[in-house]
Nucleic acid binder design. Sequence first.
DNA 1: TACCACTAGATAGTATCACTAAGTAGCGCG
DNA 2: CGCGCTACTTAGTGATACTATCTAGTGGTA
Lengths: 105, 105
Amino acid sequence: MAKQETEMLKGILEGVVLHALSNESTHGYEIVSWLREKGFGDIAEGTVYALLVRIEQKGLVDVAKAPSEKGPSRKIYSVNQKGNQYLEDFWSTWGALRLRIENLK
Amino acid sequence: MAKQETEMLKGILEGVVLHALSNESTHGYEIVSWLREKGFGDIAEGTVYALLVRIEQKGLVDVAKAPSEKGPSRKIYSVNQKGNQYLEDFWSTWGALRLRIENLK
DNA sequence: TACCACTAGATAGTATCACTAAGTAGCGCG
DNA sequence: CGCGCTACTTAGTGATACTATCTAGTGGTA
């Protein structure tokens, strides 16, 4: 991936994934393919799984185990109250930053 | 500063400063106050100076020494060819990312 | 059976970047 | 002389995305 994009994604990817989970609780593998659909195709799987562990440890999501027809059991992540609060902050921070950047040009 | 914003700035601040320098070559202290004007008020001085060293080492800017009426001599940074290329990439990366994010909502 | 492809997740180590905190240094003013 | 402003430097920290590799289960196929 382009190095610039890698750095820009910092602090953003977490919000993006959380946003996805707030629409529909699901598991890591599904998130990865969802990201690819949304144009974040170059993101490494390892990055996503690490991120999921992180938001779990921060207490932003609840986790449930679910069996899979094909493959190891899944971990289903769903955004909880704290996660929704975080998500709200994320969007407002993003909006403010976006505005300031656009005003530069 | 809010932790979310700190992370979001990664990879962006560099482009912002480079953009400022492309409009007018100037020195670190001036950049800091320019950033404050533009709404990036919470950015620590140390951060800016470290960033300037970085882009200098990357060869994105040329540096000239200039005396100051009041205080130690200044280092005047000006964007060179490589820096302009980097800046172009920065804006295109930013534009693409911004679009993808906005499309999520 | 042996192998491969796909699903699903974990882990160890690295690089980058913004941060805090503290310092150096020159100048003018009361 | 001490204070405030200008101007830059440095050491150390924390967060995050990266690469690369690993474990594991299921089904298909030569």
